[in-house]
Design a protein around this nucleic acid. Structure first.
Length: 270
DNA sequence: AACAATGTTCAGTC
DNA sequence: GGACTGAACATTGT
């Protein structure tokens, strides 16, 4: 479920299957999930236009549109929240792609979880499917408050962005204005890979530790994207009371950091 | 039945 | 004002 790897695969699905098709109708009945612009509703902003691009920053998606004349119009912002997925269906309502999720619902599609739908002239539809309703569809999303994207940020900028905060490094990594895209599972995975204590105050990390975190962030994200999602990490299987470190077999330790469940190796991450 | 859940935001405190 | 914390959000799964 949605951390950067899931959002990136959703972005690819859109890029592959939902670009450059005129939008003919919009379903936005869920007023909690769908939040139109103050001065413009989804229909007026999107119908008759086509998505021209699918871009991502952290866990946020942005789909700019253009009219038939090619003139740039409003952009659709999508966020998957805690359990959302992007699904594209064909004219018959069958899932074409987007079902490669991590919650055992692969390929299937429950219409009552559809929160936002854009239907195209050829019968295809782009849907935000979200059982928990914490996802969002908005117009002209403001992504400027997000930090640099976790997938592409370089070491220098990563270090600068972390800064000299007194906050535990785990909480800092989850802070989207600092680094965009790291979620709870990836954070635990990268900290474990780098053998860094999640509760260590950010400012107390050594130069080498920050570098190790930068490397492990990239490797954890790459591994997740290659193997189907954030659930594919090594540490996830050990996230329970009797869990053992996959590397050294020491018991895993539980803590609550940044408001989230945190699992780390009791031996290696001190 | 009570509680936790892979995310974000906002009110409140120091 | 800045840094930080915790609750709230809506729903499902255990």
């Amino acid at each position: 479920m949605p951390e950067l790897p899931e959002v990136e695969s959703a972005r690819l699905v859109i890029e592959l299957l939902a670009l450059n098709r005129p939008i003919v109708s919009i379903e936005d009945v869920d007023e909690y999930v769908c939040r139109p612009h103050r001065t413009q509703d989804f229909r007026r902003a999107l119908i008759g236009r086509s998505f021209t691009k699918a871009s991502r920053r952290g866990k946020s998606l942005r789909l700019p549109t253009a009219g038939a004349d090619g003139k740039e119009c409003a952009a659709l912002g999508l966020h998957l929240g805690m359990g959302g997925r992007i699904v594209v269906t064909d004219a018959g309502g069958n899932v074409i792609s987007g079902g490669d999720s991590t919650d055992g619902l692969a390929g299937d599609h429950r219409a009552d979880w559809d929160r936002f739908t854009a239907r195209f002239a050829d019968g295809r539809a782009l849907r935000l499917v979200d059982k928990r309703r914490l996802g969002r569809a908005i117009l002209d999303p403001d992504l400027s408050r997000l930090g640099p994207d976790a997938l592409t940020v370089g070491l220098v900028q990563f270090r600068a962005s972390l800064g000299a905060s007194t906050v535990a490094i785990k909480a800092r990594l989850l802070d989207q204005p600092v680094i965009a895209g790291v979620g709870n599972l990836i954070a635990d995975e990268m900290l474990w890979r780098a053998r860094v204590d999640p509760s260590c105050p950010t400012a107390q990390l050594t130069c080498e530790q920050v570098q190790a975190l930068h490397r492990s962030m990239r490797s954890a994200l790459g591994h997740a994207m290659k193997h189907g999602g954030s659930h594919a990490g090594h540490v996830i299987a050990a996230r329970h009371a009797d869990g053992r470190c996959p590397r050294c077999d020491a018991p895993m330790r539980y803590a609550r950091l940044g408001g989230r469940a945190t699992w780390s190796c009791s031996e290696e991450q001190c």
